[in-house]
Simulated assay, not measured.
Amino acid sequence: MIDTLPTGVIRTRNALGRRFIEVDHPAVHARIAEQGAQIIACAPTGQQPLLWMSPVDPAKPDTALRGGIPLCWPWFADERPGPAHGIARTSHWQLRLAEADSQQVRLVLELPEQEIARQLPGEHWAVQVEMVLGSSLSVTLTTTNIGPRPQPLSQALHSYLPVDDIDSAQILGLEGASYIDKLQAGAQCRQQGPVRFSGEVDRVYFDTTADVQLLDGSGEPLWVQRRNSQSVVVWNPWQAKGARLSQFPADGYRGMVCIEAANAGPDARLVEAGQTHWLQTIISRHPP
């Protein structure tokens, strides 16, 4: 835990007791929940927000927050027994580094080994997340196997992105890519043209490293880049499922879509003893 923060970075606590890191920098305004190491707001100066956060989530302690970029680790969805999307989203992380210059703010949070040992007996990991906040947002999740034998890893940076209206939203860059359709019992399909939305979508695109572009008719597209990722999850719950989600407004599906850098499905990894694997997403309003 660090004691001194750079100018423009402060710690706060909401009325319910949840702790946050607030960034008020000339280049960017942002908010990060320390529990879960989850960035829930990021707006570069002069730009529209890069992330969507549910307006009805009270941000209670010990809950997974609905929006921003939840960390799905060390498994994605229900690929292993235990809580959906793994333990990272509600675990207590520690801030290890905070630094700033004239262009950006850099934060590093770590999931303590004792927290991992408590929740994952017999597994041996070192994991940290780095966030670089400036004219764009970079999130890098780094995992090292510190145990004596290989360990399985699947994960995702579960990025909730804002759209003006889901009816006009489309994703470019996945044309021709193969995907697993979780709404069709895991059937493998091939994307025809841009991804558009007229109902619930829950897909894992695989064997693709392409950058993608999110358009919504507003004239200000979002770009999503991925590194060390050959899979990308696209998700929108639509109306019926959205109504069943916690901390999600009735019309929330109309203003968001998830585009998630991942190592999921066929892209899940086996991390050898002593090996490090990192996963990165870069979200921006300007072309890569």
Results as ranks from 00 to 15, higher is better:
residue 234 V to L: 06
residue 112 P to G: 05
residue 156 A to S: 09
residue 22 E to S: 11
residue 129 V to F: 07
residue 159 S to N: 03
residue 79 E to P: 10
residue 68 G to L: 05
residue 145 N to L: 10
residue 52 W to I: 06
residue 212 V to G: 00
residue 264 A to V: 12
residue 187 A to D: 12
residue 168 S to H: 08
residue 199 G to V: 07
residue 241 K to I: 04
residue 143 T to R: 02
residue 257 V to W: 02
residue 205 Y to P: 01
residue 109 L to I: 04
residue 106 R to L: 13
residue 278 W to D: 11
residue 64 A to M: 09
residue 204 V to K: 00
residue 166 I to G: 09
residue 121 P to N: 13
residue 9 V to T: 05
residue 248 F to M: 11
residue 88 A to N: 04
residue 266 P to F: 02
residue 221 P to C: 04
residue 64 A to E: 04
residue 136 S to C: 15
residue 95 L to M: 06
residue 204 V to F: 04
residue 52 W to V: 05
residue 8 G to M: 12
residue 272 E to I: 01
residue 35 Q to L: 03
residue 117 A to N: 07
residue 134 G to H: 08
residue 1 M to E: 12
residue 226 R to D: 02
residue 57 D to S: 12
residue 285 R to M: 06
residue 253 Y to T: 00
residue 98 A to K: 06
residue 130 E to M: 14
residue 220 E to P: 11
residue 119 Q to K: 11
residue 17 G to H: 05
residue 224 V to P: 00
residue 157 L to D: 03
residue 278 W to A: 02
residue 38 Q to E: 09
residue 136 S to R: 15
residue 105 V to F: 05
residue 148 P to W: 13
residue 47 Q to G: 02
residue 17 G to Y: 04
residue 221 P to E: 02
residue 146 I to F: 09
residue 68 G to E: 05
residue 242 G to H: 08
residue 282 I to W: 04
residue 3 D to G: 05
residue 190 R to W: 06
residue 271 V to Q: 06
residue 149 R to W: 01
residue 16 L to H: 14
residue 264 A to W: 06
residue 191 Q to I: 10
residue 165 D to H: 10
residue 255 G to C: 10
residue 100 A to N: 03
residue 169 A to N: 09
residue 200 E to Q: 14
residue 87 I to S: 01
residue 259 I to K: 04
residue 74 P to H: 00
residue 149 R to E: 11
residue 190 R to N: 03
residue 63 T to P: 14
residue 167 D to I: 12
residue 256 M to A: 06
residue 265 G to T: 04
residue 154 S to C: 07
residue 166 I to E: 03
residue 239 Q to A: 14
residue 178 S to V: 00
residue 186 G to H: 12
residue 192 Q to R: 09
residue 169 A to C: 11
residue 135 S to Y: 12
residue 222 L to H: 01
residue 134 G to Y: 04
residue 212 V to S: 01
residue 107 L to D: 01
residue 275 Q to D: 07
residue 60 K to N: 12
residue 175 E to W: 06
residue 189 C to Y: 08
residue 270 L to T: 10
residue 58 P to Q: 13
residue 176 G to L: 08
residue 45 T to V: 14
residue 161 L to A: 08
residue 18 R to L: 12
residue 244 R to W: 00
residue 42 C to W: 10
residue 106 R to D: 09
residue 273 A to H: 08
residue 258 C to I: 04
residue 21 I to F: 05
residue 258 C to E: 08
residue 61 P to K: 03
residue 41 A to P: 01
residue 31 R to V: 07
residue 234 V to R: 02
